[in-house]
Amino acid sequence: MEMIRFENVYKEYAHNITGLADVSLVINKGGFAFLCGPSGAGKTTIMRLVFSAEKPTSGRIFISEEEITDISLRQVPYLRRHIGMVFQDFRLLTDRTIFDNLNLILLVLGIPSAERKRRCLSVLSQVGLAHRRNAYPLQLSGGEQQRIAIARAIIADPLILLADEPTGNLDPDTSWDILQTLRQINARGTTVVVATHNYGLVRRLHAKLFYLRKGRLLPKEEYPQILYHEGETMEEEVVLPTLESTPPEKSILAKDSVPKAINYQGGFEPPPPPPDAR
């Protein structure tokens, strides 16, 4: 099943600045994909188009096999409830506790109080930070804050997790931990898309790869060698077996299409050590 599909998408900004030019791509349900490329190549633009913060100038976009190219401003919130987002700068509410940061998401979804509490604690223990639930974001380290941001992104059990430079502010070891956490979320069936400059991480995790330059998706033969270990070439997308593979029964744009209760299958395993020292 296709989770994200771009068909000949163009995005142009004012003053003839090209955001994207003729981008077509498909990311399957349960897939894990990297968006790579220099700054300004269009990685963030792709993400913003996926969660409908922007509309394409031309072309068509499908999420979970539903077209979202021209959805109305009213429908946008319902689309976003299926998409978790993680940013380089975490974007947590610094004047709220960790618990309140997570709780807010469930309030937005209209989930009852007892279930909210259960899910907050459950998702916090999955990222290993249940004991910090009453702390404020700025009392945590960068890596911990990013874990909270990830917890927030997955608390509503989204179909897609978008991570825009999630390791941009983190040291290499913490970056690897964060990537492992994303990988585990992916293993449970959530489609994960990571935009990154960190080619070290890309080399270490064999996943589907898109390389952008000046708004264009390069053909695979032209991908820079820096993305691969010596002697390797492009890996095909790895799709891990997933725990939850039921597609949504309703339109993802329906007001009540987000599950009110989720049965998580326990917490995550601790991230494995890096496979090599490079």
């Binding site: 009213r74 919130p77 689309l79 976003r80 998409i83 509410l93 998401i105 937005v108 509503a156």
Partner: peptide, 13 residues
């Protein structure tokens, strides 16, 4: 900032 974060997580206007 708070408004934009709430919008990102799917809060209706």
């Amino acid at each position: 900032e708070r408004i934009s974060i709430m919008r990102l997580v799917g809060a209706t206007s």
